[in-house]
């Protein structure tokens, strides 16, 4: 996974705050077929991590591709990855190329 996306970056976000703190738009059957980060909230885990940026497109979450998932489904996958107590991090494969 990810090998066919030469500009992709794996970012590990530690669950350092009670919220992930990103807003996303997009999903299958919209103008933005993969979720794009539109906001990073100060004080959230993503902001604390320092490696996610507004405008990046999320390709995978914990190795699970978001391709083909509609917006609410993609949002649920990300939310569940953050809530899952088995891991103290969430891995995001992101790309700056939209």
């Amino acid at each position: 996974p990810g090998l066919l996306e030469p500009t992709s970056t794996l970012v590990r976000v530690m669950k350092s705050a009670s919220t992930l703190g990103i807003a996303i738009e997009g999903g299958a059957n919209t103008r933005q077929p993969l979720p794009r980060i539109v906001t990073i909230q100060r004080g959230g885990s993503a902001h604390n991590c320092g490696q996610l940026k507004v405008g990046q497109v999320i390709l995978e979450v914990n190795g699970l591709s978001l391709r083909g998932h509609e917006h609410r489904d993609a949002a649920r996958i990300i939310a569940e990855a953050f809530k899952n107590k088995e891991k103290d991090y969430v891995d995001f494969l992101v790309t700056d190329f939209n």
């Binding site: 996303i24 997009g26 919209t30 103008r31 906001t39 917006h71 949002a75 953050f82």
Partner: peptide, 15 residues
Amino acid sequence: REKRLTLPPSEITLL
């Protein structure tokens, strides 16, 4: 007209 222009915008979700 490109097909993608007919696709709807997405809602935004805060996570």
